[in-house]
Design a protein around this nucleic acid. Structure first.
Lengths: 146, 146
DNA sequence: TAAGATTGAGGATTCAATCTTT
DNA sequence: AAAGATTGAATCCTCAATCTTA
């Protein structure tokens, strides 16, 4: 039943490859109650505090997704939210010591990289990254049509 | 707040690029009540009938995911399920005329490709596809560890 | 009215548990 | 027991609606 990926459209290749790496990564991060999606939240907060709206922009997801992620990350103890001193609509989201600690455990670049680029050569990896950056760089947002 | 993707680990690049393309693709497929995930089901069935377990193997998702997708695709009228004549545990999943019709509307390779590789050059596209195929080809399934 | 955030509804995905048939 | 399929619970993600504050 298995088709030949060589003939798949690029979008399907992209989704399949991403899911595969996410599954591996999630299985590893589970021991810290983290996921491939929640880890980048801590990575962003490690550099600076942010409002949830800012986090959404940095992660390129909706504010609704951020809302749900930060609730869980706060329950787990990896971040803390307090009201903004001047604008009571905002939450100031801050990473906790526990969050920094887990990030330090996980952020070994070699380990992280291995999950995505397991048996690949440096040339293959460079090739892949270049292609992915080209997809992300496409700011045109084209809507095709027959 | 926006970080430099150039410095992201490859796994994060992969997820971000996949989500971006899926969003575009989903917005387009919505008019047929399809999604980036359900379209490949029809593509597989267009060639041959299958059990749900076989579909799961072909799509590289769990049987549970297939179970939910085929329920919806059957409600929409794009496929049909009947009991297997010799093994009553199985469902034989068949594409309907409506399913074939929608597939014909959508399967223009140029249109499909444009969603993923919008403003990219042929060289960039080839580069990306090679990298993605390398990720998918990695049958080792390595679990890294510090 | 805008901005910031939350909740509701629904699809995609997973693991775990269950049910029927082999 | 194993195979095929379903349902439950959870996270990720979206759009739509709502609530509070500016």
């Amino acid at each position: 039943v298995h088709e030949d990926p060589q003939r798949w459209p690029t979008g399907r290749l992209l989704s399949a490859a991403a899911r595969k790496v996410e599954r591996r990564w999630d299985a590893y991060l589970e021991q810290w109650s983290l996921t491939h999606a929640s880890m980048p939240v801590l990575a962003i907060l490690a550099r600076q505090d942010h409002s949830q709206r800012e986090l959404a922009a940095g992660l390129d997801v909706t504010e609704q997704t951020v809302s749900r992620m930060v609730v869980r990350l706060e329950q787990t103890g990896y971040l803390h939210r307090r009201p903004h001193p001047e604008d009571r609509r905002r939450h100031v989201v801050t990473i906790t010591d526990a969050g920094r600690a887990v990030l330090a455990d996980i952020t070994n670049p070699e380990v992280v990289e291995r999950f995505a680029t397991g048996g690949m050569t440096p040339a293959e990896i460079e090739t892949l990254r270049t292609g992915l950056l080209a997809v992300l760089a496409d700011r045109a947002g084209p809507q095709a049509g027959p």
